[in-house]
């Protein structure tokens, strides 16, 4: 019995580490991809600081296409891309590529909606001051939407934890994989329950942290 719990413990720890690795690396890369996407989507809008109808439409369409593919299919569909980037198609590292394809465009949309909330009047005041488009992005759009951006990243992180569970299908490991392999396929209900409980705590913790940080930084 002791042996069983010890084994379960070490399995949980390893899965947790795998999930944490997948999610943290993916969220960083996704944010680095999604932030510029969201910024471009906003500033190319009609009447904004770098209006460009074609860039806006094209980018919007591309994001919509990526976002409409179910993650499980996306994972398989981009196998050649994964292979080209990380050199392998299985394992935790390989799972990061489809996770970024999944979360990058998603964060792009979240960033877009955050930046849209920035008061047009403030942007105008900075134009009147002689600020360049880059200065407006850096001095107005981003600082004014930081709390909202943090909430967006929090939502995306939680989404990634969910998606990373499916990455088990390509040997990505992680908590979701553990729950399915032991809990579901081998009828070890206790493993499934404990794993799900760990996921619940993880998601709660991340959301609480995100909310706290956002409210700390909001002064408006």
């Amino acid at each position: 019995m002791d042996n069983h719990w010890a084994e379960l413990g070490s399995m949980l720890l390893q899965s947790l580490t795998e999930t944490a690795t997948m999610v943290s690396i993916s969220i960083v890369i996704s944010a680095l991809v999604g932030l510029p996407l969201g910024i471009i989507l906003v500033i190319t809008r009609e009447g904004h600081i770098a209006e460009n109808k074609w860039v806006h439409r094209l980018l919007g369409a591309l994001i919509n296409v990526l976002r409409s593919i179910p993650f499980i299919i996306l994972m398989v569909a981009i196998v050649p891309v994964t292979k080209a980037i990380v050199g392998t198609t299985i394992g935790t590292k390989a799972a990061i590529v489809p996770l970024v394809f999944y979360a990058g465009p998603y964060i792009g949309r979240l960033v877009e909606s955050s930046l849209m909330e920035v008061d047009k009047g403030v942007i105008e005041a900075f134009l009147a001051m002689g600020a360049s488009p880059l200065q407006i992005i850096w001095r107005v759009l981003l600082p004014e939407s930081i709390p909202s951006l943090i909430l967006g990243i929090t939502i995306a992180t939680v989404g990634l934890i969910g998606a990373s569970a499916m990455a088990g299908a390509i040997g990505g490991g992680g908590l979701g994989d553990l729950a399915i392999r032991y809990g579901y396929q081998q009828f070890e209900t206790d493993v499934m329950v404990i794993t799900v409980a760990v996921l619940v705590v993880l998601v709660q913790g991340i959301q609480t942290l995100g909310n706290l940080l956002a409210s700390r930084l909001r002064h408006g």
């Binding site: 403030v122 005041a125 009147a128 002689g130 360049s132």
Partner: peptide
């Protein structure tokens, strides 16, 4: 850039103040 330089010599204030709320 020429327009931005010219704008630096023209101050402006607005009905709704337009300040950075998070700063």
């Amino acid at each position: 850039a020429e327009l931005r330089d010219a704008r630096k010599r023209i101050g402006m204030i607005f009905q709704h103040f337009n300040l950075l709320s998070n700063k």
